[in-house]
């Protein structure tokens, strides 16, 4: 969806959110070098990394002229600095790879904020952007169901991932509400002034 969107004008996609996602996948999938889980797992990791960088490239390089930088003004250091600090303090293991993994989990939970901030600034979103956001939010929300399943049937429980996943899903809730009440009824998402 993002690729398609980038090809038309006035994408209103937050380049900052996409940069953060590229950083998220880079720091999380460093375990590509140390552990192998499955062919599916490895290929999805590579696809995520490749797509996130391709999206950043499209926004900042190839389609620089249509990038709406004036509305993409969220200060990402306000996310990266606290998230970086927290990943040093609260992690499973004080090792470089594990701290970077924790950083990526925390950062992912808030990486969408520049995008939501951009929508609140412009007061509207293209319908395709809202579909993208909906499925991005749904992706982590479905993990909540998966974690309950895994807790009961496999005894698996990762507190860091679960708390961050809940935070991430909560951030999308407001948007989910608008998506269901407006976009699914065929209206364009526009916020009252």
């Amino acid at each position: 969806l993002l690729f398609l969107r980038s090809w038309s004008t006035r994408a209103r996609i937050s380049g900052k959110s996409q940069l953060l996602f590229a950083l998220v996948f880079t720091t999380r999938y460093l375990d590509l070098f140390t552990s192998f889980i499955s062919l599916y797992n490895t290929s999805m990791k590579l696809i995520y990394i490749a797509c996130s960088y391709a999206t950043v490239y499209l926004i900042y390089m190839k389609f620089k002229a249509t990038y709406d930088g004036n509305h993409d003004t969220f200060r990402v250091e306000f996310l990266i600095v606290p998230v970086g600090g927290l990943s040093f303090l609260v992690n499973h293991d004080f090792s470089p790879l594990e701290i970077l993994w924790t950083f990526s989990i925390y950062l992912e939970s808030v990486a969408i904020l520049p995008q939501l901030f951009m929508i609140s600034k412009t007061g509207e979103a293209e319908t395709i952007t809202t579909h993208y956001l909906f499925f991005l939010g749904l992706y982590r929300a479905l993990y909540l169901v998966n974690w309950i399943w895994r807790y009961y049937f496999e005894g698996f429980f990762d507190l860091i991932a679960v708390v961050a996943g809940v935070v991430q899903t909560v951030l999308y809730c407001d948007f989910f509400y608008l998506y269901v009440t407006k976009v699914l009824k065929g209206k364009k998402l526009s916020l009252p002034a």
């Binding site: 375990d31 070098f33 140390t34 990791k45 293991d93 790879l97 993994w101």
Partner: peptide, 10 residues
Amino acid sequence: FQKGLKHDEL
């Protein structure tokens, strides 16, 4: 390069 825990989720 220190090894991290094994995380199987994406």
